[in-house]
Design a protein around this nucleic acid. Sequence first.
DNA 1: CGCGCGTAAGCACACGATTGTATTGAGTTA
DNA 2: TAACTCAATACAATCGTGTGCTTACGCGCG
Lengths: 347, 347
Amino acid sequence: MKVMGRKPTNRPTSFDIAYRAGVSQPTVSRALRGSKSVSAATRARIEAIARELNYSVDKNASSLRSQRSNTIALLFFEEQSPDDSKINPFFLAMLGAITRECANRGLDLLISFQKLEDDWHVRYQDSHRADGLILLGYGDYTLYESRLRQLVGQGTHFVRWGSVGEVNVGATIGSDNRGAGRMAGEHLLGLGRRRIVFLGQADEHYPEFADRYRGLCEALEAAGLAVDPRLQRDVVNLEDMGHAAMREVIAEGLGFDGVFAASDLIAVGAMRALAEAGIAIPREVAVMGFDDLPAASMTNPPLTTVMQDLKRAGAELVETLAAQIEDREVQSRTLPARLVVRRSTAG
Amino acid sequence: MKVMGRKPTNRPTSFDIAYRAGVSQPTVSRALRGSKSVSAATRARIEAIARELNYSVDKNASSLRSQRSNTIALLFFEEQSPDDSKINPFFLAMLGAITRECANRGLDLLISFQKLEDDWHVRYQDSHRADGLILLGYGDYTLYESRLRQLVGQGTHFVRWGSVGEVNVGATIGSDNRGAGRMAGEHLLGLGRRRIVFLGQADEHYPEFADRYRGLCEALEAAGLAVDPRLQRDVVNLEDMGHAAMREVIAEGLGFDGVFAASDLIAVGAMRALAEAGIAIPREVAVMGFDDLPAASMTNPPLTTVMQDLKRAGAELVETLAAQIEDREVQSRTLPARLVVRRSTAG
DNA sequence: CGCGCGTAAGCACACGATTGTATTGAGTTA
DNA sequence: TAACTCAATACAATCGTGTGCTTACGCGCG
């Protein structure tokens, strides 16, 4: 015997539910979505049948009709990728917070790692894959700014993690990098350190790092100390770069008693260079990082650093994006960071 | 003036393309999907117009009609989650490889972190959100085995990362844990170590760890040494647990000159305990881990460990799942692992 | 000259839900 | 008793593609 027309998988549809409940199919849809124009009794009956049949709404049909996917896309993009499978660990940590918040709101999360050259900026919203984007990207800001403007132009909803500044396009959530930099500076100054090396770019291409440096400078100036520009080194967010820069500073023989690295990755590299040079941490040089990666507590000595509030960051990113999707007013926001003191600056 | 009917976003549809190209809508669909029943000239014309209008296929309509979402879902699940936003770093590392492979194949990747209690096992495929699942989960295997059987029962496509053994349900990809354990044992034995502590559960609830232990035992036996069960400790995959277990072993005063931790996280905790006890690594005790987390190279001394081939793992997982979705024959597979020697076992 | 076949394209419908509008029936009031 | 209101539900029209079947046409061959 040949049976045609029915696929082997006999997934129930809302028609099946309607038939058994003795109502029309649209009523099933309304009941399950909680419309108040369905009587409580009918709804209860429908829900019971749906549960019994293991029914679940077809996401594609639903999204097609309602023009809403209830999905957001998380896009990571980095410029330098020596090894593609290495992802900035800080963003990975944030991933946990974002997924959690999405789950709470019943949103699906699509993720993708992008090269700057890709055309992600047109694909997602256009194809109705996602209602909006969360963009996470360290790297040269000026390189992708034009992409962001294009997104705004085509009406795509998106939120960015990064430096909350004047020049921003679209809503941005970020840590209070300047405040945190100042806090770090004050911590080192409080330990009696006076000549502090800053490892990290301080130009407009990397606004987050630049803000951290600006904060450090503020702390120095507030303490009546001059800022020595020779103690600032442009370093991108890689361990090896931190190592190289630190070696250079040591070799140049400028005196210094503290290091503030713009990220933990850089700090780890710097500590390695210091250890190789036989310089004692923290006795001779105190070292601080930024991010509080898992690795920060495993270094020797454990690394003092600045912890960003990832949980709140994830929540704010998702909330801001959701608001934007619902056409509510949104604005950029700065989150406080917290000092985590460990032995690399103890005493 | 009031304009009705048209939403402000005037996304072009395949009808618009068809109209301008002077063909029917189905022809557009066929042309863009590469059907050979469209002449080259027509296809070129259609593609040009599509590009010009910035057309992109509506994912929802396409998935609805074809019953294929071209999306896979990546599900992490862990039993112990003291802090929800902490994710097993090993899986995070694998994430990079998986996204990359998905991108190569034009698959979208949905990700979600699940508690074991959740009903993810029915939601994804049923709602046509994804064509299949990749499951990553450390933890007590016996706890979720029934869920896996349920997945098989309802015909859901899925692939698992884990221990490739006899008892598996569904396709599984995993490292050759026994071989790697043996390799680790041989490495330590080659350094002249004779009494080797194993930190990690060795029962059927955690088959990956158990396999690593079995490999170690094989190496010992092959060298004509007896296995001392007092040197094996049940430890779950947490740094603190490694620390506690190592302290215990030290306190008990059993002699030992090597430690093989079932994971880097455990190894880091163990090294901390050894350092606190003033035991020199590697002079008095050589230490090895497993996973090669980023943190492994940052410990003091840097940790010798076993590197799993993440890139290949991601590729195999995706390939196996894709094959299953296309109803091709699939089978479980074991991947080789590689020893990474660092200073924690040097000499 | 008629038959068969291969190529290129069109027609009509199905996919499974959401949504605006019409309809029903019960209850209320003058 | 007829007109009117309101709550609850049914009807029909989408949303934008993919796909099986049919059609139109050109060509070679006996």
